[in-house]
Simulated assay, not measured.
Amino acid sequence: MTTIRVDDSYSSKYALMEDTFIKVGKGENQGCLTEKIYKLEPMKKNLIENFLYARENMILLAKGNIGVDGKATISDRGTGRPIPIGDGMIPQIERFASKYAANRVTINTFHTIISTMVEKAEKPTGNHFVFMVNERMWGIVQRVLGDYLATRKTDGAYLWSRGGEGKYIKVGATFDAYEWGGNVVSFKVDRTLSREFLEPYALCIDLTTGKTSTQPPVAMYSLKGKDYIFNEVLGVGGRSGGDSGVVSTPVAGGMMTIHGYAGIAVFNPYRSFILRCKE
């Protein structure tokens, strides 16, 4: 179980003017002037988005730091308090997954991966494998499946259409799944993988057990009621910047903190496949 925490601070003057800043950024109350000068979102909204982003990165990519003695290998410099970190999904899968490095991805690459995954599955058909891909691999998938249809001399409404003013022709299609040998593989692009892996990268997981059992293939856990905790330190001026009352600090400002506990478990990492490409 890992703790995820994000903080942000503000001055009492900003608290007084936040609504005004947001309206100006949206171009409101300016008569005929509707151009946005800049974009400003509410501070709490940004804090929530940063927390969700940090949690997504942690449960996907984090490398655990628990030693053989069951203790964390890193700690806070000031207090000496241990900072435990659990393994993310990819580190758990990498220990057991089949791996394939391709110079160039073709339709036969998909066949090889599906065949390998089927060997690990309970049934030879009816399986659904999901590829989590970064943006570079997503582009390769579109190219491979587009070339596959072209070599089959396929000419259908899903490849082109005529419509709109001027009767222009729209050419092209987006591909998100492929079926072969009674098994389906689908593709989901995740920008988190793009930030972590510069080369084309894909991670395939067998989700079939999630349809036939109450035990999901992958699950996120947290402490009861502790997955999202919001706290605020109020200084002079309070939350609005102009409130009277008890404060927690003599500083004319405040701080918001969001933290929570999360961990992820892959129950059958053996049924997975990692594809890397040099394109």
Rank of each mutant, 00 (worst) to 15 (best):
K167Q: 08
T214D: 12
G86H: 04
Q92G: 12
E56W: 00
I258V: 06
P269H: 04
A150L: 14
E122S: 09
K63Q: 15
F273V: 05
S194I: 06
L198F: 04
A150D: 15
S75H: 15
S9D: 13
R143V: 14
G182F: 08
K71C: 04
L61F: 13
L149S: 09
V144A: 04
N29G: 00
K23H: 08
G64L: 14
P216L: 01
E35Y: 11
N183F: 03
D190Q: 04
V266N: 03
R195W: 04
L149Q: 11
A157T: 10
P124H: 03
K224W: 08
I258G: 02
C204Y: 13
Q215C: 04
R55C: 09
R195N: 02
E41S: 05
R191V: 08
A265P: 04
Y53Q: 07
R143W: 13
G70A: 10
M43N: 06
F51K: 07
I74F: 14
N134T: 07
Y178E: 09
E18G: 10
S11N: 10
I274N: 01
T212M: 10
K39D: 09
G126K: 15
I229P: 02
H259D: 07
D76I: 10
I107F: 02
K123Q: 15
V233I: 09
M220N: 11
F187G: 03
D227G: 13
V185I: 10
T116W: 08
D206F: 04
V218G: 12
G139Q: 13
